[in-house]
Design a protein around this nucleic acid. Structure first.
Lengths: 211, 211
DNA sequence: TTACCTATCACTAATATTGGTGATTGGTCA
DNA sequence: TGACCAATCACCAATATTAGTGATAGGTAA
């Protein structure tokens, strides 16, 4: 028996889900809550297999809920549910560690399938959500950073070494130039990136995928 | 009518797919090729709606194919097909700009559904592939970083500020502690992270998702 | 050719960081 | 209670980094 826990603020839907799960021979609902505030206390989910988590709930929302569950009960699988196809929430949920993401309009039988899939180690996902996830991936690579920041190739090379954790001295040795030259390059890099320290430059380089 | 083009090196499967597509009232196969070498020449796909692309083909593989198609015919939708659930290939295909990703073991009727979905702007994806995509987002690192490096919460806080590009002085002001204390914390952080400079610590923090 | 950019190096001065030691306070655990 | 740890602070010395100025050589584009 797959043990399912629900978090859903709408009473009608919550009760409907309970009935749906209980109507299946292979799963049972061992708990249902109208928001995640219980998670802040000492709610024990260690017996649960799967959590169905609504994103939009009052008090403590679903994304916070995912974080707490992932931290305290790392073996519990979490399927997010929402009415909105909101990029930011999808991204936040996935980063928080959700295992599946389906829209509420998904028919009941698909929800049952989704629970089985997540138990099998797969990730049930509404195709429109999947599309957004793919786009997030793709949007991260195309970047005209070179044009934008206008770093010369030598500057990029040195920035790359800095990002790898090398000091000025190491960079100088690696590039077979004097430390003064490294310093000059860094000076230029800081100017072009509008930063004032190595750590900032590193962060900016990573964020903007310059290196 | 949805116009479909096939790239598939196995003759039997290719012919089977042609029949499958032609058997549907809403789509037709307007071309089928055993590898992507045609794409290097002057193959015109501007009439095509959807491409079904096998990943593993001789000569020019599917990932190269995706890149070429995306570059020359940006309006064509591409569904990848493979027998392998290979992380690297999935990642490469997605970055190259594929719109869907399904396993070859997927039943025929689902393939027809997938073509409709991709036409609707969704991303058909086998759940096991979806799981891998989610994992790529989430981890790249084990989440026992805290335990592993054993940073105290104050140390993590300070590391986070460092990652944001703040200097010791700014961190001291922000945390309302003396710069000496910041220095001591950094000392401990370096020890625990086994690094010797702020840039290395920043990189490690980002890589290991400590912050 | 001139103007401009890149890469190179030197020098200075002001700050910042790193790597130590040592000490106090408050909390936790056995 | 005693041992231990986290967090705080101080002081010191050795390096490293940042921010300037100035200069040379080579390439490129108007």
């Amino acid at each position: 028996m797959i043990k399912v826990v629900l978090f859903e603020d709408n009473k009608h839907r919550r009760e409907g889900l309970e009935l749906l799960i209980e109507s299946s021979d292979e799963m049972t609902c061992i708990g249902s809550y109208e928001d995640c505030s219980m998670l802040l206390g000492d709610l024990d989910l260690s017996e649960a297999d799967v959590v169905l988590m609504d994103i939009d709930m009052p008090h403590v929302n679903g994304i916070e809920g995912v974080k707490i569950i992932r931290q305290n009960f790392p073996n519990v699988l979490i399927i997010m549910q929402t009415v909105f196809e909101d990029n930011e929430k999808i991204f936040a949920s996935i980063c928080a560690g959700a295992h599946g993401y389906i829209l509420k309009k998904t028919p009941a039988e698909k929800l049952i399938t989704a629970i089985h899939e997540v138990m099998d180690g797969d990730a049930p996902m509404t195709p429109s959500i999947a599309r957004k996830v793919l786009e997030m991936f793709q949007n991260q690579s195309p970047r005209e950073s070179q044009q934008f920041f206008n770093l010369s190739s030598r500057e990029k090379e040195i920035l790359t070494l800095l990002v790898k954790g090398m000091s000025y001295k190491m960079i100088a040795a690696h590039c077979a130039i004097s430390i003064n030259t490294v310093s000059t390059h860094m000076h230029k890099i800081y100017e072009k990136l509008h930063v004032h320290s190595a750590t900032e430059a590193v962060m900016k380089a990573v964020e903007q995928r310059i290196v």
